[in-house]
């Protein structure tokens, strides 16, 4: 399987990005090996529908689950249609690294977003 983690920086030890559609990049990782492949998010500066575009990118990369901070309704719907599990990072006082997210994923402690977790950023 292939997991995507929204990231602000360029390695798994960089801070995780709580935004989905506007994330700087995604780290695509196979949990078994822990090998990380970076994919820039072309949607980060999209004028609208960033979540839709980001979700399609992950679908085209064969991703089966994603970890991010929140999903808008269009992003969630697109991920759902693509059969990609949308997982939520827990609320925390400090910004976790990508590696911490990966560990929590492997430990099975991440909650699945069962619907959009925010109401979308219009025009954004």
């Amino acid at each position: 399987m292939k997991l995507a983690i929204s990231m602000t920086g360029e390695s798994l030890d960089a801070p995780f990005d709580a935004r989905f559609g506007r994330a700087a990049q995604f780290c695509l990782v196979e949990p078994e090996s822990g090998v990380c492949e970076l994919v820039a998010n072309p949607a980060r500066d999209a004028s609208g529908g960033a979540g839709v575009q980001a979700a399609q990118l992950l679908a085209s990369q064969g991703v089966t689950a994603v970890v991010s901070g929140a999903y808008g309704p269009k992003a969630w719907k697109t991920l759902h249609a693509a059969g990609i599990r949308a997982l939520l990072a827990p609320d925390s006082a400090h910004t976790p690294t990508g590696r911490e997210m990966l560990e929590q994923f492997c430990a099975g402690t991440l909650r699945e977003a069962d619907a959009a977790s925010h109401d979308g950023h219009h025009g954004g």
Binding site: G49, A50, T78
Partner: peptide, 17 residues
């Protein structure tokens, strides 16, 4: 306008975009 998404073998249309 990212109003269309092709995933899971079908097309999603987002009318408001």
């Amino acid at each position: 306008f990212n109003a269309l998404a092709v995933v899971g073998g079908g097309v999603l249309v987002f009318d408001d975009l």
